[in-house]
Nucleic acid binder design. Structure first.
Lengths: 114, 114
DNA sequence: CGGGATCCACAATGATACTG
DNA sequence: CAGTATCATTGTGGATCCCG
């Protein structure tokens, strides 16, 4: 049953890589966290995430929208006002998010002891 | 997960970014998965992960070693034989790993329905 | 066998400026 | 306000060769 075992773990690799494609990278999870905590506007999100540039935020918002995690709504035209909101689907990543926060904290403790 | 507003979510962002620094990127988790499933040798790991190059594997193994997730052991000198093993500490990422696999599977179902 | 060194090409990101 | 445009810099991938 070695072949089956082998296939299974490459399947796992694919699943993790799929996940990384959607929520990986430097900015996607920070954006989701910021929005989760109430930010809906481009500039608010931008200011809430240290060091992010408009270019990256714009790109990542598009990516997240394409992957159904957020929704873009034009609220008014003059002046233009846009709202980004998390979709219900986005809340399904919370398990990953919490695991990563937890591990980040754990890791920081580990590093301190060094 | 219900929206709970907290003022200092920037701490959360930092934690997630710390985690991403250590286990983020295209190859680190696949390497850990491969090793978790028994691969210890450079070439075995290399062959088990589709599309990875020696250069990237070499780089990432170093990074993982510096971050205490794996251990490099020289088993024999002539011919040189090296074994990479997961540290106990590395097993602490399993929660993140499992969450990501699970979400990857979930996401694939979602995509199929589209 | 387990890599490192090098060179090249290209993709991703960053800084800054600017606009409907 | 919500982004684009442009250019500079960095990161990554591929190929090849090399060495202990």
């Amino acid at each position: 049953m070695k072949a089956v075992k082998e296939r299974n773990f490459q399947e796992k690799i694919r699943l993790v890589q799929d996940t990384m494609f959607v929520i990986g990278g430097k900015w996607k999870l920070p954006i989701i966290i910021s929005m989760y905590h109430g930010n809906k506007r481009f500039n608010d999100i931008s200011l809430s995430i240290p060091h992010i540039t408009n270019r990256m935020l714009s790109k990542e918002l598009k990516h997240l929208e394409e992957n159904l995690l957020i929704k873009r709504t034009i609220v008014s035209e003059y002046p233009i006002k846009v709202e980004y909101t998390l979709t219900d689907y986005c809340y399904s990543v919370s398990e990953v998010l919490i695991a990563m926060e937890k591990w980040g904290k754990h890791h920081r403790e580990k590093i301190k002891k060094k």
